[in-house]
Amino acid sequence: MGIKVEHLNYIYGQGTAFEQHALKDIDLEIKDGEFVGLIGHTGSGKSTLIQHLNGLIRGTSGAIYFNGKNIYEAGYNMQALRSHVGLVFQYPEHQLFEVDVFSDVCFGPKNQKLSKEEIESRSREALTMVGLDESYYKRSPFDLSGGQKRRVAIAGVLAMRPEVLILDEPTAGLDPKGRDEILDQIERLHKEQKMTIILVSHSMEDIARYVDRILVMNHGEKVYDDTPKEVFMHYKELEAIGLAAPQITYVVHTLKERGIPIDTNITTIEEARDEILRLLSK
């Protein structure tokens, strides 16, 4: 069933000098099992939007349906919504607090008031999903590397067994290899656990090879919502709003402009290599 957002508006500081229309009439549907990238520069409203999806921020007007039910209806269980729609924030430092990795991951399921056995088995499962074995369980989360901390933070949310996993810039501050490792891990969650994933980023290059669909936000509005190929076609418009398509898009479009009959749907290096080789072999 997934998530459906209808005419969502969010205005903060209404009636004061600081009034700001942070989200403007957002319509959006995310189906079960999708892998969606959410892109926009700082202040575009992308972080505000995801916090609406698990009820941390309440919209000024509009509606959000999760599995068909309006979350703004009286008596809707927000606590339960937060375990169905898991949100991992940008900095793991904002959530790690326990003495060891395992207890930290247990925090979510503990709040769900599960039995001790259930809490532990879910936490074990979550840690396995992010690729941390038992040797990490008793380590202090504060002694880990940046990439490992991020894994623990993700496991902390996965342990609640969410249907939808939202990650706010999970690669910020990581080195290139660490970035690829985390993104590969997330892709595995999508493929193996059939989890719906929303990946927030400000880098097109990072997510182009992973997601099926890209949402682009600018000034609180949804400006594009399509497959990566279609969205990157608008690379000039993207530039105008402070984003850029992957370098590969520029390569392909420049070749095209210079009269090479190349397929402009290409978004990855491998595709570009094969297409250029095909053209050269003629």
Partner: peptide, 15 residues
């Protein structure tokens, strides 16, 4: 060394 190269560089290298 866990590093990366710009996409253009990588494409040229692959070709």
């Amino acid at each position: 060394y866990r590093l990366d190269v710009p996409q253009v560089t990588e494409l040229a290298y692959e070709l």
